[in-house]
Design a protein around this nucleic acid. Structure first.
Lengths: 248, 248
DNA sequence: CCAAAAGTGTTGAAGTTACACCCATGC
DNA sequence: GCATGGGTGTAACTTCAACACTTTTGG
């Protein structure tokens, strides 16, 4: 049952996952609380993360850890980078917990961070392993996090915005069929600023990654919106090449 | 003398540096050979890299290791990311060397890679520590590298091109005073394609990061070129914000 | 005067921004 | 019929790509 019995742990390297969820209006962050002596009240929430095994690569480790702690599987994770400040685990608030789960609570552990964006409705977090709970927290409500997780979150936000500037985003975030307004709201949520509706639509349509469906919204008390899907082939091509701005 | 006597090594985490050098026409890569039983002939060259210490952060570790092996100091290093495939150190060609320098030659070590761009003329590599030699190798001549260093190099190249698309590059690469032609050649070297001279100049000048000097080249058998310097303030501002392409 | 690299301008096409009204539906 | 969000066009402006000739110097 306990996978750690069957794998050798690398005691110096962990992985942490920054999972953004979109609920059609706001960005949320997947966080866990940890089983420990401390009551849930005072404990700071944390990004899902744990030590890696010797016989897996970093990408696999991140997927595995995310699945073990929150139940989320089959998510495409992108590496953000490594974080290794010697002070990163030293906050006294997090001490109890480290002592309860780590064989070497004082080891200096570097962590390799990953991020992803998903459609919240497709993924209901379910805590297991040492996670006492796993849930979506609206990004604007996120305050204190364990360890250096706030630094990691900030790096993830920066990376997400950079990604948006260079390539299309949305494939894994929206329902299969979606309206341009949903996509519009997603971009506004990530960039955290309003975007002109007409210009957004024009620009997005010109990218040639959207297929317009005949189907429309039903039962809405206003003009029904058309649904679109992503054209997977063009979307992937554009994801690979990027937008080629400032091309010289 | 041996710094390792005074520091505790983290036996599972190393750092490797991809240092690109520009000589006003082509890109070069800083590589080392390692002291080992094998003759220099058959040994594959390697990126400068070594295990980190417990009491330094990753950025410090990269700077220190680079300095120890090649003598290069005070270089601004940017993290590329972590590489941790369990197979990454397993090539038999590199076995001898690992056994000679590592207390735990079989440990699975993840590495955190860094890159930088410098003006070759400002930095003459000088091998020390376990490096038998350290030298600039023209990028197009680089063939086989030790371990997974070719993967790391490819990631660095990709990252460098992405950087170029989003922000100005050149501050640390060119002499303090430089000509637009030098800058032009630098961009061509990084992108590995020819760029239109007039359009390049217009675009670059419009960024407002260059200060035109009155001084001109002397002793050249053709029309002398004007020198420019970077306007540090504007350069840094633009580096921080990026070019803001695809701005919606 | 020749060789070498520096430096410069225009035009047509494409893209960008800013902005306001009518449309389809449920109740 | 009214409230709600969906959907559309244009004009002024800026940016972009493509392209060839003149200038200044050393020898």
């Amino acid at each position: 049952m306990n996978a750690k019995l069957h794998h050798v742990v690398n005691p110096r390297v962990s992985t942490d996952c920054v999972i953004f969820g979109f609920d059609n209006s706001k960005l949320n962050l997947l966080l866990i609380t940890r089983k420990s002596k401390q009551s849930g009240e005072s404990q700071r929430m944390a990004l899902p993360g744990d030590l890696i095994y010797e016989d897996e690569n970093l990408d696999q480790a991140a997927s595995r850890v995310l699945g073990e702690l929150t139940g989320l599987k089959d998510i495409y994770l992108q590496q953000i980078g490594a974080f290794g400040d010697p002070e990163r685990l030293s906050a006294s608030e997090d001490r109890d917990w480290l002592e309860s789960v780590r064989e070497q609570p004082d080891a200096l552990v570097i962590t390799v961070a990953y991020f992803s964006l998903v459609n919240m409705r497709d993924y209901a977090p379910q805590a297991s392993s040492f996670a006492a709970s796993a849930r979506w927290v609206p990004l604007e409500m996120v305050r204190e996090l364990a360890f250096d997780h706030h630094d990691i979150l900030n790096a993830a936000k920066r990376r997400l915005r950079e990604t948006l500037k260079n390539k299309p985003v949305g494939f894994n975030l929206l329902p299969e069929k979606f309206t341009l307004t949903q996509l519009h709201h997603l971009y506004e949520a990530i960039l955290d600023k309003p975007l002109d509706k007409r210009n957004f639509r024009r620009k997005m349509l010109k990218l040639n990654i959207l297929t317009r469906l005949e189907e429309k919204q039903k039962g809405v008390p206003h003009k029904p919106s058309r649904y679109y899907t992503f054209n997977q082939e063009n979307y992937e091509r554009l994801s690979d090449t990027g937008y080629n701005n400032f091309d010289f």
